[in-house]
């Protein structure tokens, strides 16, 4: 089954390029160039996956997620950006996106990432892994509602480091002598922690980034 996809990006050229590159590996059921447009299109077509540009006029990908992210349980969002801005990416993930890839991703990898997200997995590009490691770095743990969400386990850290170094899930599994399924579990646990953590560091870290 090919995933039904909506492309959201304010550059028509980019949408056309992605559509051509992906070819028949996915079923593109809609395109949108603005957040408002995107919300309408996504509501109408209820796709499996929304490829969501982080940076757009009128609020960007975050506006779309905040509006309809929680109301469509069967639609999953994959963030796509040229941006290096960690706080934007983290904000989109915390708002519910299931992964983040950069626009320089190859067509094969993008098709693979879409399929993975459609199947319910999460997608960690090396850059996202780096952002998350940075966010959870050397934790002087502040009191919080649920401490479980505020720390990464050593194993999760290991998995993230390998992701950041450019390892694929399969390679990580071989490296750590665990199954691919376990790697996927670690990855989605990390994503959940990132979304649910009320960690003091996350806000402080984001503030640090904004100051720069």
């Amino acid at each position: 089954m090919t995933a039904r996809v909506v492309l959201v990006d304010d550059h028509a050229m980019f949408r056309a390029g992605v559509r051509a590159e992906l070819g028949d590996r996915v079923d593109v059921v809609g395109e949108a160039g603005t957040p408002a447009d995107a919300i309408r299109t996504i509501r109408a077509s209820t796709p499996d996956v929304v490829l969501l540009d982080v940076h757009m006029p009128e609020g960007g990908g975050l506006a779309v997620l905040e509006e309809i992210g929680s109301s469509l349980p069967d639609t999953r969002f994959l963030a796509l950006s040229v941006s290096d801005a960690a706080e934007d990416v983290i904000a989109v993930i915390r708002a519910g996106a299931r992964g983040y890839v950069t626009k320089t991703i190859s067509a094969d990898d993008l098709a693979d990432a879409i399929k993975r997200v459609a199947d319910g997995d999460v997608v960690f590009s090396p850059r996202l892994a780096g952002f998350v490691l940075d966010a959870f770095r050397d934790a002087p743990v502040a009191p919080s509602v649920d401490p479980d969400f505020d720390q990464l386990t050593p194993r999760e850290r290991e998995v993230l480091r390998l992701l950041a170094r450019g390892y694929a899930y399969k390679e990580i599994a071989a490296e750590l002598f665990i199954s691919i399924k376990t790697v996927e579990t670690h990855a989605s646990n990390v994503l959940r922690k990132l979304q649910l953590s009320s960690r003091h560091q996350l806000t402080r870290w984001a503030t640090d980034r904004r100051i720069f």
Partner: peptide
Amino acid sequence: ISIEVVLVA
């Protein structure tokens, strides 16, 4: 070539 640069701290 393209280089995927990931830097932590």
